[in-house]
Amino acid sequence: MVAPTRVLIADANPVVRAGLTALLNEAPDIAVAATASDGREALQLTRLHAPDVILLDVRMPGVDGISALPHLVQLAPVLMLTYSQEMEVVRETLLLGAGGYLIHGEFTPDQLVAAVLDVRAGRAHLSPTAASAVLTALRTSSHPQRTVAQSMEHHRLNRPQFGLSSREEEVMDLIASGMSNQQIAASCFISEKTVKNHINRIFAKLRSATRSEAIARWLGTARPGVAGHG
């Protein structure tokens, strides 16, 4: 009888961990060996249980998935399983050695089981949004000397110049995408206090008092003469 594929689940959300555990344990050829709430615990439990595959979230408190990934891939194949859809995150995790990238909401239970078995066998497995991000990254890199940051700058060429730093522009793009301060902090790997400091400077430069005003000016949809930010 073939031994089941043993899986370690690393996710900060206990509800997600419990759901994935129940789902995978129903598969006849998979068994959940352990669960972890952050990257540090994932590394400890991987050394202890020696799983065949690790399911790893990107954003976790303490040691996040991206920080833990280079260490974990030396011990077992890693399948990213996360809500993070950003092209740079998908690209970075794959470059760091992840064998696949699944985004919550884009797979069925059977597809998750197939992805786990694929990654164990060395076959890449990407959900649709992750695959699109990879294609976009490949197309971007095909342009000489064009980095992701330069690609973002390319899309801003017709935008009014507000004197924002590159980091402030990155934060403003995330604000415009609808992210909260907490989500921006996680995406940029900075503290929420630092995010707030960036936002204060951004609002001053954009002469905006609210997020909606700042977004309107940033996207060029606001009329001149927006009230200033104190």
Rank of each mutant, 00 (worst) to 15 (best):
F189K: 06
N181S: 08
F203G: 00
L55K: 06
G122T: 12
H49N: 08
M1P: 06
L45K: 14
E41P: 12
I54G: 00
P61W: 11
A133D: 03
S132I: 02
A76L: 12
V90R: 05
R201W: 03
P224H: 14
M179N: 13
I66D: 06
A34I: 03
S67V: 04
L96Q: 14
V2N: 10
A124G: 05
L48H: 08
T93P: 04
M87V: 11
G105N: 10
F203L: 10
T108R: 13
L81K: 09
E168R: 02
R201K: 12
V53G: 02
Q183Y: 04
T140M: 13
A22M: 09
A121R: 11
G178P: 13
V63L: 14
L20N: 09
H125L: 08
R6Y: 00
N181F: 06
L219R: 08
R6V: 01
L94E: 06
A68Y: 03
T194N: 02
R211E: 15
M172A: 09
I9R: 01
H71A: 10
L8W: 07
A42E: 00
V134T: 06
G220L: 10
Y83P: 02
N181W: 10
D173Q: 07
R59K: 15
D29P: 04
A98N: 01
G100T: 11
I30C: 07
Q44D: 15
V119L: 10
Q183L: 10
H143A: 12
E170H: 06
L112P: 00
E153L: 00
R123W: 04
A12P: 01
Y101Q: 03
A124Q: 08
I54P: 00
R47V: 03
R146I: 08
H49F: 11
M1H: 07
T93C: 15
R156Y: 15
D64Y: 11
N25L: 03
H198S: 12
V226H: 07
Q111V: 08
C188E: 13
E88L: 08
R59E: 15
M87Q: 11
L157S: 11
G99A: 12
L48W: 02
V134Q: 03
I199Q: 02
Q145G: 07
L102S: 01
L164E: 01
G225F: 04
L95W: 14
M87W: 05
A42Y: 07
M80Q: 04
M179A: 11
L96S: 05
V226E: 14
E153S: 01
L24C: 13
L20T: 07
G228Q: 13
L24T: 06
P144N: 00
V89H: 04
P77T: 03
Q74D: 14
Q74M: 12
V116P: 01
E169V: 01
T140E: 06
H49I: 02
W218C: 02
S141E: 15
Q74Y: 10
L55Y: 04
E88S: 11
R207I: 10
G178W: 08
S142H: 13
S166Q: 11
Q182S: 14
H143I: 14
W218M: 04
R211S: 15
S151D: 13
S187A: 15
D11I: 00
G105E: 14
N200V: 09
P51H: 01
L126P: 13
S151T: 06
Y101T: 03
A186W: 07
A36P: 05
P51N: 12
R6F: 00
